[in-house]
Nucleic acid binder design. Structure first.
Lengths: 338, 338
DNA sequence: GTGAAAGCGCTAACAC
DNA sequence: GTGTTAGCGCTTTCAC
């Protein structure tokens, strides 16, 4: 029924090693021979057995995608994960690898051991560590201990000799801030995200850069502390908008919080964007479903994951930055006339 | 470095076959022997090599989760997928299997062959086919052709001799309709979903059952045709609400469309739930973020996927129905006084 | 209850 | 350029 490398060799009149060479695209095969083998492969509908190949080669052709477990809390970040998966899958397919997903709750005591177990048990040939796990030393060390190549996604800050793929959080946030300033806003507030997530922290730096580049003064009172959740966005908005001198623009470090800001504004009878401009970061699906639709920064997660897989399966790059892009929609507009 | 079954056998003073028996929980091992082997395993930190085990046993310990590729179109169904993945992963872990995800665009010409290739190449030991792929005969046949055990999720209608896991779409929709009728609504509209998706069609049947059970007459004019998308929900709502006798309640076949209904109502200045009640199906994350929060039916996707994996890895059941549950929130209320 | 031996289908190392 | 041979680390079969 299922044909093996022997069947192919026999039919093509060559040795199994030659078949192996053809299958693995190794050199040292004459074109005629190669064609003959390929014909035999087609005729027999031969497909190499992965288990046998893995066993003999000590490699698994499996890439692990490790990310914060969404089951651990209530969060709408599913789009984030799906995007990564899509990018990673795309790259895996073209590199003849498979993808193993591994959501993982960093709050658990034993994550380190569990991670090590998964990686070694499955003999993963590479691991992708998504943010915010990528900036948690406990997690990174566990992966490192397995001696498996790994790349970190948005680790916040770069470490030498470690593969990583990032986006330009800081610069794109500077651009967004400058864009808001360009609309005439002078009191631009910023809603911080969860400080566990290093890349998100970088967004605040970009906000400050943007203020400076626009000749605006940074005011501590225009900063609010959120935790990346919708609810925290609502709370921060309430706090900011109840000030004697409320901001005319609020820039949130992620879209969920920005959505919370819009909701609170609506409840307070503040019209977006006429009285208040709101911007976010991520470009989750919700951004286009909100009313008004949300101006935000699109994080190229799928490309980032794709590049990460490529790093593990061939590309020799060590560090890659995939630029984010401003998505201007309905939630931002000219500053209201005083 | 990495220890093998030989190392364990040597240390325990037994043959490798006995170690194998212990590892695989096979019978015919004396307790003393078993303990001795287990101690050796611990001491050596032995973990069986999956590739070797798969090669020798002709099984892969891999379950494939196949679902409609979200990249194929613009859809916020990521929560749907994440939920399935979570359930499937949970069951895989307890059954010592791994999960391979495989988003797949059924609109492509070659899906059948691609699917066959993935399944046979990876030697999957089982496949889970999510809706709506589970009710597409082209897809089902392709999976069938591989002779790999598979279970269908929400296939719309049951087929004999085929494993499947469903939820009670029809009954829960009847309950929702009865609930709305119980609030005094007499003109309850229904927004149909995509007819490609058989299980979604069953929801309309439940709506009709509910009307009947409540003594209400079915009116063709209170049915609108959506396609599961947010935008189609908006359009259907506009159509329904512009009638001379508009409905006082709209029940949409999924949450995305229900969200579109709420949006349109807001734009038309119709207050939800005071002038209009709105209900959905699925209980996606968005349901709790809408304003007002959405009354809906929670589809137990994670459990369904979990049971599906269990069917493939041990459980001998053929058919399983996991009940859905009403989630009453802010978007439904008493019918307005005439 | 336990063990010996024969593969599983491939890759790696080296010979030719 | 191509073939030979020896494993990879397990499970299976069957003998004891």
């Amino acid at each position: 029924m299922k044909s093996t490398i022997f069947d192919v060799a026999q039919r093509a009149g060559v040795s199994i090693k030659t078949v192996s060479r053809v299958v693995n695209r190794e050199p040292n095969v004459r074109d005629v021979t190669r064609e003959r083998v390929e014909r035999a492969i087609d005729e027999l509908n031969y497909r190499p057995d992965q288990s046998a190949r893995n066993l003999a080669s000590h490699r698994s052709h499996l890439i692990g995608l490790v990310y914060d477990d969404p089951a651990a809390y209530e969060l709408p970040s599913s789009g984030y994960i799906i995007n990564m998966q899509q990018g990673a899958l795309r790259a895996c397919r073209s590199a003849m690898h498979e993808l193993l997903i591994h959501p993982c709750d960093f709050r658990r005591k034993n994550v380190g051991n569990e991670l090590r177990a998964v990686i070694t048990d499955a003999r993963l040939s590479g691991v992708i560590l998504a943010a915010p796990l990528s900036n948690m030393s406990r997690i990174v060390r566990a992966v490192q201990a397995t001696n498996t190549p790994f790349v970190r996604l948005s680790p916040g800050r770069r470490l030498r000799n470690q593969l990583c793929v990032v986006t330009d959080d800081q610069q794109s946030c500077q651009k967004m801030t400058e864009y808001l300033a360009g609309l005439g806003h002078t009191r631009i507030a910023f809603v911080r995200g969860n400080q566990d997530h290093a890349a998100v922290s970088n967004r605040e730096l970009g906000y400050k850069d943007g203020l400076q580049a626009s000749g605006l003064k940074f005011r501590r009172s225009l900063i609010a502390d959120g935790d990346n959740s919708f609810a925290s966005g609502e709370q921060c908005a309430a706090k900011l908008l109840n000030r004697k001198q409320p901001p005319t623009a609020i820039f949130a470090a992620n879209d969920d919080m920005a959505a919370g800001v819009i909701r609170t504004a609506a409840r307070m009878g503040i019209s977006v964007p006429h009285e208040l401009s709101v911007a976010g970061f991520d470009d989750i699906t919700l951004a286009r479903q909100l009313d008004p639709t949300l101006t935000t920064i699109r994080q190229p997660l799928a490309s980032m994951a794709e590049k990460a897989v490529a790093m593990l399966t061939g590309d020799s790059e060590q560090y890659l930055c995939v630029p984010a892009s401003l998505q201007i929609r309905e939630s931002t507009g000219k500053a209201p006339a005083t």
